[in-house]
């Protein structure tokens, strides 16, 4: 799964960087949108493997514990499971966290998507207005526009 994600991220990054290297504002905008998607996908990979070594959470320096459990009861079950496991390492205890994927990165992605959507709307409006005012969307021509004239005084 992580490999598939990695390939997706790499391809999306590649395409978006190619688009951003163009000299046309519309293509630049598409590149920026795509790179946002690539970023979101790469965060998704952070939650990829379910929960790391939670059984050692309070013994070693490994800290990644997902911050959410479903209910109060489940939280108690989990802590009891930890205690049983610590006392009898040979016993097979069902642990809810073995099946869960860390949900926090998905929450981060959701926030980033919403923000990205708003920014996308703004950027498209900006491009429409730029086309109306400057009559061009070519970056080279825009760059030449309105640069201050060098002074003749010296």
């Amino acid at each position: 799964m992580t490999v598939v994600l990695a390939v997706c991220v790499a391809v999306t990054f590649g395409v978006s960087i190619y688009m951003m290297l163009g000299r046309e504002l519309m293509g630049l905008a598409i590149g920026v949108f795509l790179i946002g998607h690539a970023a979101n996908l790469s965060i998704l990979a952070m939650s990829g493997s379910p929960v790391i070594q939670h059984d050692k959470a309070y013994q070693t320096a490994e800290f990644k514990i997902p911050p959410v459990l479903e209910s109060d009861q489940q939280a108690k079950d989990w802590s009891e499971a930890q205690l049983i496991k610590a006392e009898h390492p040979e016993q097979d205890v069902v642990n809810p966290l073995d099946e869960m994927v860390d949900p926090l990165p998905q929450a981060l992605i959701l926030t980033a998507i919403v923000i990205g959507f708003a920014v996308m709307g703004f950027l498209l409006t900006l491009i429409v207005l730029t086309q109306r005012r400057a009559k061009t969307l070519d970056v080279n021509e825009l760059a030449k526009m309105d640069l201050p004239t060098p002074s003749q005084a010296h």
Binding site: M20, L25, L28, A29, V32, I35, G36, A38, A39, N40, S42, I43, M46, P105, L108, A112, I115, V119, F122, L123, L126, I127, L129, T130, R133, A134, V139, L142, M145, D146
Partner: peptide
Amino acid sequence: MSQAYKYVMLNLLASTIFVIAAGM
């Protein structure tokens, strides 16, 4: 309008890197 896109695009790019870095 002819200068705004630089600021907007660069900051969008920086925000994207920020998201990736936060995820990492």
